[in-house]
Amino acid sequence: MDLQVLRSFQAVAEGSTVTEAAADARVTQPALSRALNRLEREVGAELFQRVGRVLRLTPAGRVFKEYVDAVLDSYDRGLRAVAEVVDPDAGVVSLAFLHTLGTWLVPKLVDGFGRDFPGVRFELHQADENSLAQRLLDSTADLIITGKDPGHPLIAWRRLLVEPLWLAVPTRHRLAQRRRVRLAEVADERFIVLKPGYGLRGSTETLCRQAGFSPLVGFEGEEVETLRGLVAAGLGVSLIPVSPGAATAAETNPDLPIRYLEVTDVHGARDIGIAWPAARTLPPAPQRFIDHALRATAEPGRGPGGRA
């Protein structure tokens, strides 16, 4: 059984046409069709059925694909491990992270690591909170940086830092001249929030619940910058992550007419941590990145989350 045929089977199973898969494999379309037919004979079952002009997996094909995915993933990880033994200063780190961390924490960690290990390449993926843990379990990421411990027996997690969450209000808001506020004071106002599944949405709902109310949702977005923009436009208030490295909350985006108020009646913050598969030995590059991230965030004066 040829690994390239398995890769082509995987590609067609995931939506590529036989012609496209053949081009990727640098073979002719008839040659790949014959190879897939041989694969079906070896497996002893029909793997595809034609639906219109496309091929769809049969029930047997869906079962077989799970094992093909595992075989190819294991083989590719083996190649990576050998390459990193041959050249310890090279390698790949596949890192998935929360959308909100892509503006400050992840760039600083990657940049700092890159200065020490310039031969390491990064594969970066943004995802919501619910998708991050699955990326580890599916082996589509080596590491994740997330807003909470996934609480899964196959995932190890370490806290990196605590990220403050401040209440963002427009400059013409009744509370805009204050520096601190009780979250309960905006219980009757509309909240601009991220969609369900995002870590910040869960943190917002939890803090509001602790303050004694459920947030009245005025808009659900997918990016924190959208939340800021809508707050600036006077469409509501929002709990916004504030980089611990900012000297003042106003530095978050000085161009927007927003005021950031410290919340006093609940603990306005969330944990940020790094996680990896607990049952799998990581290649050297991802393991080094874990060590780097823990060191970089350990001392408030020196890490990417600390004050300069």
Rank of each mutant, 00 (worst) to 15 (best):
P170I: 15
G102R: 02
A23P: 04
V54G: 03
L183M: 04
P254K: 01
Y198M: 09
D188Q: 14
P150Q: 03
L165G: 02
E185V: 07
S33A: 15
I258N: 10
A233N: 00
A285W: 02
Q4S: 09
A249E: 06
Y75I: 03
P30G: 04
G305S: 15
R228S: 07
G306Y: 08
L239G: 08
L39A: 05
L175I: 08
Y67W: 07
H292I: 07
A13D: 04
E189G: 10
L105G: 00
L132V: 01
L200Y: 00
G44E: 02
I272V: 15
P254Q: 03
G306A: 05
E129F: 02
R270T: 09
E299Y: 10
L194K: 14
R121L: 09
R270K: 09
L230P: 01
V85E: 13
T204P: 05
R38P: 04
R56W: 00
G229F: 04
A23V: 06
V217D: 07
T248N: 06
S214I: 03
R180E: 12
P286K: 00
S74K: 10
F9S: 10
A247F: 04
A90H: 08
S8M: 05
T103F: 12
R158F: 00
S131N: 07
T226G: 14
E123S: 14
L109Y: 12
A184I: 10
L105K: 09
R159L: 10
G305D: 14
D138V: 02
I258D: 00
A168V: 08
E205M: 07
K195M: 06
E222N: 12
F117H: 14
A13W: 11
V54Q: 04
F219W: 10
L109P: 15
L98E: 13
D73R: 09
V54D: 12
A184N: 05
G236V: 01
F64L: 08
R228P: 00
P215L: 05
V71P: 00
L160K: 11
Q10L: 15
Q134K: 12
L39M: 14
P304A: 10
V169M: 02
L95T: 03
R62D: 02
P284G: 01
P196I: 02
R77T: 01
V217W: 04
R7D: 02
E20F: 03
A90C: 10
H125R: 12
V181Q: 03
T58G: 00
G229Q: 13
L55H: 08
P283K: 01
S238H: 01
A233L: 15
V193S: 08
Q4A: 13
V110A: 07
A176F: 02
E66K: 07
E129K: 05
